[in-house]
Design a protein around this nucleic acid. Structure first.
Lengths: 210, 210
DNA sequence: TAACAAATCACATCATCATGTGATTGAAAT
DNA sequence: ATTTCAATCACATGATGATGTGATTTGTTA
């Protein structure tokens, strides 16, 4: 008997999947909540399920953040994502955090059931398309391929300064320009990268997105 | 029509797979050789297949070595391994070299056919067991340099919020705590990491230093 | 010659961050 | 029972960041 827990904030989806899984002969699904925090509280008090189905976008802590915490305290629980996100960063972050499966939300109920069984049996369920992204992401990571960036050389200088943790004033000092020049470049950089803070710029840079 | 090539030094296996695939309505398999060298010669002279099935252990160059060379000269060819090896190093090396699929030799002929189709359609065919090894290998790789961090769970939450580009206010909202609580955690984090700005924290986190 | 892009600089306002100091509560360890 | 630690919250000040608007200079391109 495989016991399953679900963290999904969409009530209809959660209830549907819970009822379907709980009806299966070899599966029991007694806990389905809408936040990581709630699930952690439950795990502390009751017997742990064998596997967890986890969404990413949740109230409070994200599913990805939750993986790390749950795996730390309950390392025997196998976690599989069930989410709408199919961009490789979400996939990568989930798997790196400790998830062992990744399903997209259009996955049919029979396929979810089969994936739960695969997960419980030591496999890592994911579609071939997801698998392709995983391979590409890991190998891109390993190869450190820098994507094309439309930042000018000076803008790239400014980004490097941000990544080095420098304030606007220190960047201005480094390049012997005025702080208002730095600000102007920053504005252009934010526009090109579609962000609104240096934190986002730094993250994009260190993730290899510029 | 998917055209397939095979590099397999076991004559019986090679002929069996070639005949089975060539009989399929949507698949044509006109070339099956026993070494990488032979396949490369063939690719230079004739139309290239869409996908290649490749063993690892071969006379002369290994399948893994062959991947790199073939992908370099014929980047549009999709390569899938078909081998007895299921240790994670072989799997990893194959995928890193450019293979997009990995099957074990006990895979049935219908499954091989289906995998060829999946590969041609942009997926990465592999069993859940292989996928699990891929994830574990990659994440062990990435985590090898992850140092022990003395941040408390809540501090780690706060760091994750910073890395996600959130302001103190948004982090407070995410965890349903006050902004002054966030500030207090930030102060502790800066002290532990010996930094003075969120930029430095974000950089340390994304560089795997916490 | 004119247009354009990159780089530069200024002034302004409001929000956020960094830092300091002080405090309470609950759980765990001694 | 006491101490320690983690988590929480408050108030304060000065610095930094985000954003808006306006401007000049230089080199390149059409």
């Amino acid at each position: 008997m495989i016991t399953v827990g679900i963290v999904e904030d969409n009530v209809k989806i959660r209830d549907l999947i819970q009822r379907y899984l709980d009806m299966q002969e070899a599966i029991s699904c007694k806990v389905a909540v809408d936040s990581v925090e709630e699930m952690i509280e439950h795990l502390k008090k009751y017997d742990n399920p064998d596997v967890l189905l986890m969404d990413i976008q949740l109230p409070g802590m994200s599913g990805i953040e939750g993986i790390g915490i749950i795996k730390k305290e309950f390392p025997d629980i196998e976690i599989m994502m069930l989410t709408v996100y199919h961009d490789s960063h979400k996939i990568f972050d989930s798997l790196m955090a400790g998830a062992s499966g990744y399903l997209l939300k259009h996955t049919s109920l029979p396929e979810i059931k089969e994936s739960v069984e695969t997960l419980a049996n030591g496999g890592a369920p994911m579609s071939p398309q997801i698998a392709r992204k995983v391979i590409q992401h890991f190998s891109n990571n390993e190869k450190k391929e820098k994507p094309e960036s439309n930042l000018t050389p000076r803008e790239q200088d400014i980004v490097n300064g941000l990544v080095d943790g420098l304030s606007y004033k220190l960047i201005a000092d480094r390049f012997d320009i005025s702080i208002d020049t730095v600000r102007a470049h920053i504005r252009n950089i934010y526009k090109k990268l579609h962000v609104n803070s240096k934190a986002e710029v730094i993250a994009k840079s260190l993730r290899g997105e510029i």
